[in-house]
């Protein structure tokens, strides 16, 4: 996926974490964010590829971007929609 041009409100570096995990960091931040905010979460946990998009769908949020960082981590960009 190409580099996104969306302005990121807050970036959370969750690389190197297994517990509570990058997804939980994202949910915590979505809960306290304003509607319309764009959050980026950096994760090196391979499980995030499956977990983060699945939660975004379940919770009716919007995944606006997914970028690769040096082949070792991913940046998930999520907009809070409601």
């Amino acid at each position: 996926m190409s580099m996104t041009t969306v302005a990121i409100t807050k970036e959370i570096d969750a690389r190197g974490s297994f517990c509570p995990g990058p997804l939980m960091e994202l949910i915590r931040n979505v809960k306290t964010a304003q509607v319309g905010d764009v959050l980026a979460v950096l994760s090196g946990d391979p499980g995030s590829i499956k977990d983060i998009p699945a939660w975004v769908v379940k919770a009716n949020q919007e995944l606006v971007g997914l970028e690769d960082i040096d082949g070792s981590a991913k940046r998930f960009i999520v907009r809070k929609t409601h």
């Binding site: 297994f18 517990c19 509570p20 995990g21 997804l23 939980m24 949910i27 699945a54 939660w55």
Partner: peptide, 10 residues
Amino acid sequence: YPINRVFSIE
């Protein structure tokens, strides 16, 4: 539990 399994660590 908040995520899609019963604990954060798989």
